[in-house]
Structure formats: structure tokens, C-alpha cells
Amino acid sequence: MMWIVAILAIVLMAVLFFLFKVLYEANIMRSMFVMAVLDREFLEGQRGKINDYMKSIAAANAIEVSKQFNAALDSMAFRIAKEAPILLGARAVLWEAFKNANSNTSFRQ
């Protein structure tokens, strides 16, 4: 009985670890999307890097390009998340967009 409880605890910990990892990765990608859409400086900085990467890809079809680009995009997102607080940056950009969108209305805090 003790072994069953130990095995179930280990399985539960593994599932929770995987779940938190997936949620963290989704937050990073969502934040990168927000930054690319709402922050022109971020977009321009990354656009040059993406163009350079596209020139370096050797692929025979769109599927190969897509696979390589998606892997590079994930890598870039995680590198940016380690180097800069992209999650906080995305929240700040969203807040500014919210305030700008509501500046003509009678919004009160």
C-alpha cells in the first residue's frame, strides 16, 4: 500500500511539473505576441533577427520552413524571457494600451 501511495505521489508531481511548464511556456509566447503587436520598438528589433534567420534556413517546402521557424521562435522567446522581464513588459504595454483606449471615456480607477 505504501508503494502505491509513493508511486501516485511521484506521478502527481510529474504531472504538476509538466502542467506548470506548459503554462509558463504559454505565458511567454502570449507575452511575446502582445509585445510584437503593441510595442513598435520590440517588433522592429525582432523583425531584423527574424529576417536574418529566414535567410539562413535551408528548406525544400513550407512545412520544413515552418518546423524550423517554430523551433527558432520558441528558442527566441525563451531566450528573451531569460534576458528581459518580457512578462512584466507585456503587462505594462497592455496597461498603456488599455489607458489609451479608455482615455476618451469616463473610466475611473
Rank of each mutant, 00 (worst) to 15 (best):
M2W: 02
W3P: 06
V5C: 02
V5D: 03
A6P: 00
A6V: 04
A6Y: 01
L8P: 00
L8G: 03
L8F: 07
I10V: 04
V11H: 04
V11Y: 06
L12K: 01
L12H: 02
M13H: 00
A14P: 00
V15I: 09
F17G: 07
F17S: 08
F17I: 08
F18K: 12
F18H: 10
L19Y: 02
F20L: 12
F20V: 11
V22S: 13
V22M: 13
V22T: 13
L23T: 04
Y24V: 10
Y24T: 13
Y24R: 14
A26W: 10
N27G: 10
N27V: 05
M29L: 14
M29D: 09
M29F: 14
R30F: 09
R30H: 11
S31E: 10
M32T: 12
F33D: 09
A36F: 14
A36R: 11
V37F: 09
R40G: 00
R40N: 04
E41I: 06
E44T: 07
G45V: 01
Q46I: 05
R47A: 05
R47Q: 05
R47K: 05
N51G: 10
D52R: 01
Y53D: 03
M54T: 01
M54V: 01
K55A: 06
S56T: 01
A58S: 04
A58V: 08
A58Q: 05
A62S: 06
A62I: 06
A62W: 04
V65Y: 01
V65P: 00
S66L: 00
K67E: 04
Q68W: 02
F69I: 01
A71T: 03
A77M: 05
F78Y: 15
F78H: 15
R79T: 15
I80H: 08
K82G: 07
K82S: 14
E83T: 15
E83R: 15
A84R: 14
P85D: 15
L87H: 08
L88H: 12
G89D: 11
G89P: 05
R91M: 13
A92M: 13
L94R: 11
F98Y: 15
K99D: 12
A101E: 15
N102T: 12
S103C: 06
S103Q: 10
S103K: 12
N104L: 12
N104E: 12
S106E: 12
F107K: 10
R108W: 06
R108G: 07
Q109F: 10
Q109L: 11
